[in-house]
């Protein structure tokens, strides 16, 4: 998977991961991939819901020792 942009949201608390993701997705083109790395435990459901509602696709997600990595394809 080609990653076009990476957002480091580690250590940030609600609502910042979603606010920063919104900003970051504005910097890439439709069809490109944004990687978001977050440690907020709520980020998993937050980003999943946000993608669904704002028309982007959550392509993949993994969790490693409290660090969540999301791959979002811009819609």
């Amino acid at each position: 998977m080609d990653i076009n942009k990476t957002l480091d949201a580690k250590g940030l608390a609600c609502p910042m991961p979603i606010v920063k993701t919104k900003k970051a997705i504005g910097d890439i083109e439709s069809g490109q991939i944004l990687e978001v790395v977050a440690t907020d435990a709520g980020a998993k459901s937050d980003l999943t819901a946000w993608c669904k509602s704002s028309g982007h696709e959550l392509v993949d997600m993994n969790e490693d020792d409290g660090v969540f990595t999301f791959y979002i394809k811009k819609g």
Partner: peptide, 11 residues
């Protein structure tokens, strides 16, 4: 303000 900022991120 957290809800407001979150909603703004939802456009």
């Amino acid at each position: 303000y957290i809800i407001a900022n979150g909603a703004a991120a939802y456009d």
